[in-house]
Nucleic acid binder design. Structure first.
Lengths: 197, 197
DNA sequence: ACCTTTGCTAACCAAACGGTTAAACCATAA
DNA sequence: TTATGGTTTAACCGTTTGGTTAGCAAAGGT
């Protein structure tokens, strides 16, 4: 692992734990086991280092999501695949959702920068497909965007609000992971049952 | 409005917009239209000022939620009331969910302090009641905690991840509010339909 | 052999930060 | 009128922060 990678990994760890404002360049340097000046040698400044970490987080997720959204599967298959894949991915990267949501709320200017990114997750094809399947009588009449919001909510929220949820309904880390494993399949079943004609 | 209130309101605004780490005492002072020293005169230090704001946010929400969770209503009625009341409340306080979730993830020590608070939201009664209604054949067999997670997810997530959601599915502020108005009733209907026998 | 570049660091800097101090202000009671 | 005690401020302080500088050592080119 070269120095740039060491810095990047350290930065990802610290930024995801503390957020942009709470992260300290010194802490990232310590975590990487190098001098603080090296951060600026490799990544110019805090903002650019952060953007590198943030964009990388997204460029891991987005193509995976788009591949599902834009495939030739049926809506039901897409829902099944999305919830399963997303939860699997996030179980391995549990810091990602709170991090992304936090920074999107804190840096609205930054939202725009990423929304114009080539690889942004784009549900427009899926929305059209949902409308078609409604007309075809496969899916009950509903607003596609509400359905998307339901899918995102059920899959992403438990991870985004992990600490809150664990505290509120009193579950341990292992119980949480068990529940999430179960949700990999149960969410899709539940949604499909409630929208199929 | 006395000075303490001016400070408190200013602090709430700044903390909710920037988070604890990102908030600046000077900015709070400016927002309140007073001298920075006055903050320390009234609230000792940044940590205590933050805790005052955070606890206040919770003490607005928690009793309302508990009143519903612990009433003598049926589970279906509780779900209906909870989703409706919570969304109504959060439409008027849109900064609250991201703020709470962010700080709970960033200050895990702080989570404990609030979880031992007398007025914490407590779903234990509701969980027992769900188990009873399952035995009574009113509700399909399911894990009560999964049901709670679904309810929280569908109601809270769109607000917690507001910026992300608005960007992803391409909706304006007014469209977002329209969708949330609709969800006040649609979420409950949907959940109840999918769990009733 | 002699530059030039690259990877890296110790030491340093100016600005920003949370917090303190000492004095001014101002109502009110003696 | 003046003494008192809570309220408010300008000025200041020590520390932390992101960022810079000057230089070292090894690698490569000529």
């Amino acid at each position: 692992m070269n120095t740039e990678e060491k810095i990047f990994n350290a930065a990802r760890t610290v930024f995801q734990k503390k957020g942009f404002a709470g992260a300290r360049m010194q802490e990232i340097a310590d975590e990487a086991g190098i001098n603080k000046a090296m951060l600026h040698y490799c990544f110019k400044n805090k903002q650019l280092l952060f953007e590198a970490v943030f964009m990388n987080a997204f460029s891991q997720l987005a193509p995976q999501i788009n591949a599902i959204f834009n495939s030739s599967d049926t809506v039901f298959e897409k829902i099944t695949k999305f919830t399963h894949n997303y939860i699997s991915f996030v179980i391995d990267n549990p810091y990602l959702p709170p991090f992304v949501i936090q920074e999107m709320n804190n840096n609205p200017e930054f939202v725009m920068k990423f929304l114009n990114h080539e690889n942004r997750p784009d549900p427009s094809v899926l929305i059209g497909q949902i409308e078609n399947e409604i007309e075809a009588g496969i899916i009950k009449p509903l607003k596609p965007k509400q359905l998307l919001m339901d899918i995102f909510s059920l899959t992403v929220f438990p991870f985004a609000a992990q600490m809150l949820v664990k505290g509120l309904i009193q579950i341990s880390d292992s119980e949480f992971n068990e529940m999430m494993e179960e949700r990999k399949t149960s969410i899709a079943t539940q949604i499909i049952n409630s929208i199929k004609k």
